[in-house]
Amino acid sequence: MTKGILINYDYCTGCHSCEVACKKTLGLPEGEFGIKLTEVGPYEYTDKPAPDHWEWTWLPVITKACDLCMGRTTKGKMPSCVQHCQAWCMYYGDVEDLAKKMDGKTRWALLATRE
């Protein structure tokens, strides 16, 4: 069953906990990432009222270095990024199960890596 990470990115605050937790777990050197934040904004929309008037979106991208924390997940633990996410907006599991959470009420992104 393909595993993935689901992100409720309406709530990703760009706190970098996932990035640093990943680097520490994988022991990555300078400039390498297993997961890295991307940022859009902040900018204003002319035609959208609050609370959607401003765009400021963070979304982590999972890189080729990510092994979904095999060492942790085989023991039943969560990947280090999920464990430490301060906004608890990251979920790990079977992609089919994760996809069912995508309910249209908030913004979701489902990321799956190569097996």
Partner: peptide, 24 residues
């Protein structure tokens, strides 16, 4: 060897900011 967030804290619940994740 490493630092992780402790799920037993009633407020932080296992979450940590980068400064303590990089405490080592």
């Amino acid at each position: 060897e490493r630092v992780e967030g402790d799920e037993n804290n009633p407020v932080t619940q296992g979450r940590l900011c980068p400064r303590c994740i990089a405490l080592k």
